[in-house]
């Protein structure tokens, strides 16, 4: 049976807008996301892509529109109608958020093992040995040497910190992960490693991902679908390869043709 036979989308975004005074940061964005899908939000600086990500991740209330998430034991629920407690619980269990700068998504002065185990401890896991075993397993899955489990991220390279951030987010098997430019600032070979990891996690865990990126190659590699933003509006959306190979909108065409091919 195809794992895609679900009746409701995992995330439904409908008509969300956001203004800062006169500045229109976001202009009525809508899309559905289904389990296991990777959606890339691409655009240049100031396009509104990060604003969009933050509104759908319950980090920034939109001025208009709704964001609904299919909670585990129930249907689609408006995330902004939830209590703060419910939102925070969601953020720690069924969702993940990978920051551009890993230091924003990690406890830098706490060991790698504790960083990975924290969500579980927050859910009531009380066996040190088992927590450590789970943390070790995850470190291996993100290709961090398990011997570094007691080191703090201060001692890790940028790529390792980013992979640790991913492990920290995925330990509770979330169904949806938001990522804000996760590969920015990393060396190309390190990026490749991280993207490979994300690709596998998406495949093996049926993980839905919304990834903001300005790098079309990242979108090509990871995303099934893509949304192109320009000045706060979604100018085009569809299958990633279609948008990159046969862009319709003038701005999309400009974006695609501007990318240097090595």
């Amino acid at each position: 049976m195809s794992p895609r036979s679900f009746s409701t989308p995992l995330l439904r975004v409908h008509g969300i807008s956001k203004n800062y005074g006169h500045h229109v940061a976001l202009r009525s964005a809508s899309f559905d996301l289904w389990p296991g899908e990777v959606l890339a939000i691409v655009g240049e600086s100031g396009s509104g892509k990060t604003t969009l990500l933050n509104t759908i991740a319950a980090r920034n209330r939109p001025d208009q529109g709704r964001v609904e998430f299919a909670v585990r034991d129930g249907g689609l629920q408006d995330i902004y109608a939830m209590s703060q407690a419910q939102q925070r619980l969601l953020a720690r269990t069924d969702w993940g958020f990978v920051h551009q700068n890993p230091a924003d998504g990690l406890r830098m002065d706490v060991s790698a093992g504790a960083n990975v185990g924290e969500r579980l401890m927050g859910l009531g896991h009380r066996h040190y040995g088992k927590l450590r075993a789970i943390a070790t397993d995850w470190l291996e899955r993100v290709e961090i040497d398990a011997n570094r489990i007691d080191d703090t991220p201060q001692m890790f390279s940028g790529g390792m910190r980013q992979r640790l951030q991913i492990a920290r987010n995925l330990v509770t098997q979330p169904r949806l992960v938001f990522m804000d430019e996760p590969t920015s600032g990393l060396d190309v070979s390190v990026q490749a490693r991280l993207l490979d990891l994300l690709r596998q996690l998406n495949r093996n865990m049926q993980l839905a991902v919304v990834i903001v990126t300005h790098d079309l190659a990242v979108a090509r590699l990871l995303a099934h679908r893509m949304v192109v933003m320009h000045r706060g509006a979604v100018v085009e959306s569809g299958l990633t390869d279609q948008l990159l190979d046969d862009p319709q909108h003038p701005y999309t065409q400009l974006l695609v043709s501007s990318v240097l091919q090595p």
């Binding site: 195809s2 895609r4 559905d32 289904w34 899908e37 099934h224 679908r225 959306s237 569809g238 299958l239």
Partner: peptide
């Protein structure tokens, strides 16, 4: 829809 197309390519 994109979702239908993804499934189409899969199957």
């Amino acid at each position: 829809t994109p979702r239908e197309l993804i499934a189409l390519r899969q199957q």
